[in-house]
Design a binder for these strands. Structure first.
Lengths: 199, 199, 199, 199
DNA sequence: CATGAATGAGCCTTCATTCAT
DNA sequence: CATGAATGAAGGCTCATTCAT
């Protein structure tokens, strides 16, 4: 790995790219996905053109930020699998992770919602990855007879999206309501396949 | 009450108000809740100031439009009750009505979502009315042991909101994906209490 | 003229409109048709939106400015006709007027060139008007056997456009070269019909 | 000629230069002279700096591209002379060639127009070359009494420029109107001297 | 000598809200 | 009470040119 041979005219470029992503992450978290890209560029100490060179589309930037958080998602997944839970409980947990992930930035559900329809975009691919994992957990639950067979990962993904959206303020600044987090909604969503037997 | 002495003081106003609402309804349906108010005013044949006088806030206009559709909702409710279904089936039906109602205009879920947090506004009161009905059906189901006791009408309202949102394109023109209408999502939502036991 | 009865909520609007046109005329003359509209608005002392309200398109503004100069053109035409010249001489004179008119603002030939292809726009209609006059003079010359019968007003208009263009700097700032005005070109253009009898 | 001893010092440079010109030719033809130089560099597989080193100015690049097409022009000229036409017919043919040559790339007339005023630049020298040939044909016609004596090659060059410009859409994509090609204009231009005998 | 990343000014457009008439 | 003109901030995007590597 002592690969310090490659000509590296990209040293600062990569640094800039990383800084942009870093700044964007914070900006998204603080002001939502709608924050003016100019302000991101400024805060990152680069020109507008530089940001644009790296991320021609806002979506591209969002995708890059999410990519940076991918390890977290992988870790969560591994954690769930390591616990060797019942299939339905595992799915349960995964959905909770999903919703939480979607709520990271204001407006993220909306972007993901749009990306699901437009595969092939970087963000669309991120969705596909996540949906695949969901399918994985869902499949196990279905094989165990713990989930309805006519449901797909995409359904759950969209359901989680709606849940995350409903529990998030759409307009930046609106607070995540009065204690009514998405938990109640999530509970409903879980019930969908975990069989909400009151008994 | 003493007949017609005044030339046309309030007559015009009411006519204008009605026309604005009518035009807005069409505009909302066609272009979503984001239509420039200017264009609504123009299409209604009134000045921007007039529209503004009647509806100081876009929310007010939305509320007025929804008010006009309230009878439909009442009728639906009456219809469900007239059928004397099992409590859970009735709730089921009501939720379907709810989601459908929320999907009438692009962007409506978002406005309702915001209004729920800000009661006292006209739109917030509309929400309360609808939530009350939901509580009515939910209560019956709960008393019949057909629904979890720890869920509230607000939860279902928010759930329906998320469902309606997820099944609606945010940007006008984007089609409700590949056949995956909100029905699948709705099914999940219903399952939450309707007991989705595959067996 | 004592017509001060009509409700006139447009008094200032018209004043603004006039001022914008006036300022634009100067700006076009000084910096060419490419001046930033923002600067025109600023110089006219109005907001960007106001300018935009009056002239949604740059073309609309150009058309309005030209409209203001229409009387000049009419006067020129009347003057030519008053002289009762031979048909070919009259056409000759009119073409000179045309070229001169086209050279008023840097970039005008280009806008007119585009407008000819897209009738129905305000600028396109201006073109049509001018072409009609050209057809008038050309027709007379043709009937007198002094001009080729297979040429149309549009041909001469385009020819004049090319002539005006060739004698005007395209990039603002470049001076109208070294004494080589459009006269030489115009001479060529005139010859096209003045002596072009195939027979 | 003595085979390949030097690794590739000048070889690359020349190869790059050639490739850039080649790519630029295609880009100019497809998108006009306004293509972003960045894109040309990218398509040529070189860095922007490299392109810039070879051609400090866009004009320089244009000149280089035209230089590449010079043989065609020479061949045309030779062809005309080989036919031993009457002087006026020869000039006629040459002008047609000229206009056609000017219409090769969108925006070319504009660049040439500017270059005429600024001799000494590479593009200006290209113009001079072409004007010289025009003078050659024109002179012959004048000596034969077939062309007005007070016209110069530069006049015809500018006339051809205007003709080429007027018959070319400025915005890429706009078609050369409804069948009205530059032929009609060219016809006018030809007439200017072909029959313009003052006598 | 090549690379290609960074710069950064500049323009157009939209629309909610106010207020003179 | 209606009108509709004016406001004016704000944001996304491009691209020629430079210069560090």
């Amino acid at each position: 790995m002592s690969a310090a041979r490659t000509r590296a005219p990209r040293r600062d470029a990569q640094r800039n790219r990383a800084r942009i992503i870093d700044v964007a992450e914070q900006a998204f978290a603080a002001e939502g996905l709608d924050v003016p890209l100019d302000s991101v560029a400024k805060r990152a100490g680069v020109g507008a053109g530089t940001l644009y060179r790296h991320f021609p589309t806002r979506e591209d930037l969002v995708a890059a930020v999410l990519e940076g958080r991918q390890p977290d998602l992988d870790r969560e997944r591994a954690g769930i699998e390591a616990e060797r839970l019942e299939p339905d409980a595992a799915l349960d947990r995964w959905l909770a992770v999903l919703v939480s992930w979607m709520r990271a930035y204001n407006g993220l559900p909306g972007s993901l919602r749009a990306a699901v329809d437009a595969r092939s975009t970087p963000l669309g691919m991120t969705c596909e990855t996540v949906i695949a994992v969901t399918d994985h957990f869902l499949g196990a639950a279905q094989r165990a007879g713990a989930a309805r067979p006519d449901v797909q990962g995409l359904d759950l993904f969209l359901g989680a999206l709606g849940t995350a959206w409903a529990s998030t303020a759409s307009s930046p600044g609106t607070e995540p309501p009065d204690g009514r987090t998405g938990d109640d909604l999530l509970r409903l969503l879980r019930c969908g396949w975990a069989v909400g037997r009151p008994g």
